[in-house]
Write a protein that binds this DNA or RNA. Structure first.
Lengths: 215, 215, 215, 215
DNA sequence: AATGAATGAGAGTTCATTCAT
DNA sequence: GATGAATGAACTCTCATTCAT
């Protein structure tokens, strides 16, 4: 490939990324289905026709957002699961930290993924479900391994626990996006992480509460 | 009001309920915006024009679903908060049990509320946000009170903890609706409730895990 | 079915017919693909949305034109073939007369069918091809039978002859629609029929021409 | 003009021809309006922008196909008409032979011309009509002359007869392109020509059929 | 000459909503 | 009350054409 060709390809990739970035922004603001193709175009500063140069359809744009962002996250999750250096609780803590940090770096992307992952066409678009279940499976595996190692409570249904873990994180993302959870500065993020760790790992109870609760 | 008139009103109320029930079903199946007014009508067994006799618009139908169902739940939550007989942890446990039980009785309603509460039109429709924040505030208040009473960990940011609590329950609802969490029989429900209690209140860690984690 | 319902059905059928008539007119004038759905609507004096009440799509409108007109013609052709009272030449003559008469009664319909039967999406829309081959088969059968009875020249390839027969008629239709063949009055029609009969059955040659041509 | 310049012009002409050839192929396969400019380009192995160096528009490409192919045919037809060595029937036979032979050499070109000549845009693009009427006039003139010479039946309306003649040939072309008329090998072509001659000149009737028909 | 990114008019289709019956 | 025919705004997608490189 010559220099000139390479440059052209790069430019094309840039345009693609530019459109994708714009799409993420407007999807985050208005939601996928309230977003018109022309909204994406306007935000990207291009004609709407151009979007069809780079993507097959509006749906395809969303899918690309998923693939090119969630895929990376999934990869990291997978590596984490397979790591032998960390205990299960440490892995879970790491995952929540990852997500909360991502929230600071790229809140829109997280928002879109979280929002649209559970869109009702989920029954139709298998990729999205599998995107979700992919991450779910990792957490599920970590919990099972943690129980086997004696680090996590054997009284947890690992499947339900994985849902709880994800749900907690998802809602924090939503809160962050709504601005009802402050999570912009490193300090704020640290505070959020601490609460997640406390609530999910140590439990919300104090010893006192725990005693009373001894049913 | 004469007998005849009263009967007419009752019949009208029946029709309204009939449409609302149908709406909940199809909203649950397809999501609000993928549902056509004619879908609701077909499910209800009426002509679609009739829906405009009882509701101003399609949006209005959804709002009614919220008001007439979530409102009831909110009332119960409020009463629970104000109860002086229960500790904060017991109140939280009660709330999760309420929701999980509701999931068995009226899964569609829960699904619709959960699905649409976090929809992107939330910025537009204030009722829905307030519907959500109404419930959120209750949980928040309970957590704050629990911390004050020494029953709940003072290390929790109460706002974040409330989100975590809600998120966990929300995702369980989603899992139940997707069929990936079994929650139909009383036994299954009990098991789910137990995991929620264990994970959120006691924490996922065992003592062993807890020691290792003593950072 | 009550009177009222029946009337409603009739009115609906009327609207359908009204749209179909308008469609035939504009298809004849501009061709199918140059015709916008809104053109049909304007001609029919309705909103374009209404067309989608009665037809699934623009394609469907065309298909309906085919089915509801060509189908009738095909039926007549089939009956003609099966008639035992007429010789093959008489049947062919009858067919050409049928078409030329139809041209006076409903020129637009004939034009649309002729024009669009050979549309290039013919490879896609099997109905139209079969519409054509249906008619073709009848003529083919008549020619074969005529040869067997000794009424038609055994030197004809029946398949090619059927094409010739149809092509001659088709082009006359085109000419009539272009206005280059006068075929409006009964006298003109008679004259056209006579030439068709003369050219196709007797042949264009005179005896004199025939002798010279005796290769 | 220097050698180099001339070579450039030739190359330019080659490119033009290359595009035109590609256009004919895809027009034949998909029809003019279903063909995208990019289809032509892909088939020609050039960028679609280049087509606009050689042609003003997509329409212009089609027009060029007409002019540069039909024009040649028209010239031959004109010469044939003016020939004093052949009788009218011989001329007609020659024309049909010309077309059927062309069908073997360049079926796509014939197909495109036949298909698009009778398209609905005919009212818009005068060239195409005149292309058609040019050929029509020749046949018309030949028939009139043949009648005057006593070689062709005086009972024919020469205008209608010319249409019949053309229509027969046109449909044979269509059949050949659809593959329903075998016309590839010289033997097959001969057979087709024989049927055309028999049907149009001698007539389809046998003497027996002729007697019965003596109305 | 050659490329293909960029543009935007234009077309088909959907569906919430209105309203005459 | 009840129906569904009728309307048209809104939206996605196509593709001929232009133009900077």
């Amino acid at each position: 490939m010559g220099e000139a060709e390479k440059k052209t390809v790069d430019l094309a990739q840039d345009r693609r990324k530019q459109i994708l970035r714009a799409a993420v922004e407007v999807f985050a603001e208005r939601g996928f289905h309230r977003t018109r193709v022309s909204d994406i175009a306007r935000r990207a500063g291009v004609a709407y026709g151009l979007i069809y140069h780079y993507f097959d359809s509006k749906d395809h744009v969303l899918n690309s957002v998923f693939e090119e962002n969630w895929g990376v996250f999934l990869k990291v999750l997978g590596d984490l699961r397979d790591s032998e250096e960390l205990t299960a609780p440490a892995k879970l803590e790491r995952i929540s930290a990852l997500l909360i940090d991502a929230l600071q770096v790229a809140p829109s992307i997280i928002q879109v993924i979280i929002q649209e992952i559970s869109r009702s066409d989920r029954f139709v678009h298998a990729e999205k479900v599998s995107a979700f279940t992919g991450a779910f499976d990792v957490v599920h595996d970590i919990i099972v391994a943690g129980q086997a190692a004696g680090d996590l409570s054997p009284r947890l249904d690992p499947r339900v626990a994985a849902y709880i873990f994800f749900g907690a994180l998802e809602t924090i993302c939503t809160g962050a996006m709504l601005g009802t959870i402050q999570c912009k500065t490193p300090e704020e993020a640290t505070r959020v992480k601490a609460t997640v760790k406390e609530a999910l790992l140590q439990g919300m109870l104090t010893d006192k509460g725990s005693e009373k609760d001894a049913t």
